[in-house]
Computed example of a mutant assay.
Amino acid sequence: MEYPLIYDDQLIIGVKSDDGYSLKYESNDDVKLNLEIFNQKKTIVIDSSNSGTGRLKRDIYNPILKVLLEKYNVQHDYHYTESADSISQIARNLPSGNLLVLIISGDTSVNEFLNSLSGEGGELTIVNIPFGTGNSLALSLEDNELTAIAKLFTSTPVHEFNLYDISLPPNCWELKQSARVKQMPTSYKFIVVFSWGFHASLVADSDTPELRKFGLERFKMAAMKNLQSPHQYPGSTFIDKEEYGGPYNYWLITPSRKFEPTFEISPDGSIFDDSLFLISFGVSVDTMSVMQQVYDKGNHIKNPDVIYNKVQNQEIILKFENLPSDVRRFCIDGLIIEVPPSGEIKLKSTGNTINNWNIFIM
């Protein structure tokens, strides 16, 4: 893959191959680059080392991003994550002010960063250089890792970054490979998906060292495992007192259009709109048939057995009671949590502000 990154006295092209990333240069006299955003903001780079399949032959900072930033004298702080809580520590210790944060990561790392923000706050613009597996956020922005970098050197507009609040019951736990890691707060934000049922189960089951090395294919492998032993997810969803009852097979809330390049879960979705979409179906519906429709340009929304509901300025409430242990896993932007047997979860749009920070995205 080749993509033009910068137009100056030279045309600089980013190249992706089996051996990694590189730059090549060609003469060009037509278009000048724009460095205005770097003059206005302090630049910080966060390189999430474990996103996707890791960094073997996938280092984009040293061969491309660092070279370009240094070429144009852009001073920046670089953070390479060394541990599971590195991103949270970076977010908690950000200086206040007007910041440009380049996150080389997938959706989960962006979520973790936002939920860990603290301090005096300010204005924060995020550029997500997608290095995860699903990369729904980047798909919503129509970016790959090279086009995301190219935006930095053009006059790309900046948008408010819509965030969505989840009110969780007490005693929810973050899970890592089925083990409880830490207790979740009762208020948490998500950016691309909150799910239960089949979707949450396949994300959870795919998060093993054995499967992560397969990249995007790991989701399909975990999905086949879940299809062999389907579960029922009993609960009821309320939107302005209108009930969408279970038991469910598939249940999720998202503002996003795609979870994979060809997996069009919500054809009307847009992260530039603060609307959410409820997509669900019951246990009597054939899961594989609906998934094939999702891959077929989102044709599942025409299926009468599938609930596809746009939610604007309304609170979504999910209630559940006496859940067995094997159906208590939920997915928040790739993060897996375990809920208690009974409780309720509330979701709503909360704008682009979190912990004294106004959040924007390029």
Rank of each mutant, 00 (worst) to 15 (best):
G52L: 06
F38C: 04
G121M: 09
P130A: 05
M288R: 15
H79E: 03
D59Y: 13
V311W: 08
A91N: 07
I354E: 03
K24V: 08
L216I: 14
G351T: 13
P230G: 02
E36V: 09
L347G: 05
D274T: 11
P157G: 06
V203S: 02
V101F: 03
E264A: 12
K189D: 02
L163Q: 09
V285W: 11
I6C: 03
L252R: 00
S105H: 01
T156S: 15
Q232I: 07
E243I: 10
H159N: 12
V127M: 12
F238I: 03
M224V: 14
P247T: 06
Y164I: 00
I279L: 09
F320R: 00
R58I: 04
R92I: 01
E145P: 00
Y164L: 00
N358D: 12
V181K: 09
S96G: 11
E338S: 04
I354R: 09
F131S: 14
E210R: 11
V283F: 10
P209C: 07
I44R: 03
E210D: 14
T108V: 06
G215Q: 10
V74Q: 03
Y21G: 02
V203H: 06
A223P: 06
D30W: 14
D296P: 08
A200E: 04
K310P: 00
G197P: 07
L5A: 03
C331R: 04
I13E: 04
I361L: 08
Y164E: 01
S289V: 12
G343Y: 06
I316R: 00
V203Q: 02
V31Q: 15
N313H: 14
I354A: 04
E112Y: 13
R55A: 09
I64H: 07
E338K: 10
F38A: 01
Q183C: 01
K213A: 10
Y25M: 02
Q75G: 14
N356P: 11
P209H: 10
G298S: 02
Q293P: 12
L146G: 05
N50R: 15
H159W: 14
H76S: 06
S17W: 14
R218Q: 08
I359L: 13
E123I: 07
F198P: 02
E145V: 05
V101T: 10
I265Q: 03
E120N: 15
